[in-house]
Amino acid sequence: MRAFSYDRASAVADAAGAEARLIAGGTNLLDLMKLEVELPTRLLDINHVGLDQITEVEGGLRLGALLRNADCAADQRVRRDYPLLARAILAGASPQLRNRATTGGNLCQRTRCGYFMRLGTRCNKREPGSGCDAIDGSNREHAIFGVSPACIATYPGDMAVALAALDASVEITGSRGGRSIPLRGFHRLPGDDPSRDNVLEPGEIITSVTLPPPVGGRQVYRKVRDRASFAFALVSVAAIIDIQSGRISRADLAFGGVAHKPWHDPEVEQALLGEVPSPVLFARAADLLVAKAKGQGENDFKIPLLRRSLIAVLAEATGV
């Protein structure tokens, strides 16, 4: 770990515009600093700026950026109205990590690509222009959607996948004021600049995530993984499905472990809306979803796995 300076922010204003790396729970940043993958020279601790509560706004909920993942998942309102979110959080990491991890830090967690986390490899995300060792290397965990010749990594988290299905928004403050952007647009595809995971500009801080008013229907978070707990998703599916008069009236879907961001595909949702749920319909929607997928070799299995997982989730959510 390299030496760094450490300061503590006591209000959001201290952090907005600061030329320092923000540290919240530290569960991702510190690991990467020890590996010298992240090399911040200045750390600004934002654990004392407040923003650790859930507040009710416009029929929805505002989750503070410093709210701990564990507290979020345990909140009665979250559990009642947004069970998808509670389940996604609980499907991630371990209780110890969730006690530390925060809303903002979770959104900004970095990829788990093994080359990214290891010095002495070529990685455009860590060292722009150096190349990508994953493309011809070990890429079992990598993306099947939205890859670029520069990077095929995934965004590894669970919480954001649920937030994408819930169509949450992210509130951000910078030196020039605040902005709110849809979560679905918060993470980026790698394109030719994989060093940037999301749209945050230097000096910006996430202050909260807002959940829209609760909607009807069944909410399912399905995470498929190599062991029963404490493993990142091979693929995951977040779904909110409602049925009115025997037909699907809501189909909000997002997918994890398959792209550089929580994957959202409106075409698949359209294919389900207004239809009578049936295995054939599910298969058709799943085929549509994976039609655009492309494997990298070791991760080819994610294509049939995602297809099967979506079918299972739709069956579970509709009771078919």
Partner: peptide, 11 residues
């Protein structure tokens, strides 16, 4: 130990 998967309690 995050990447090399020994069984966890749930397994």
């Amino acid at each position: 130990l995050a990447q090399y998967h020994v069984p966890c309690h749930a397994d």
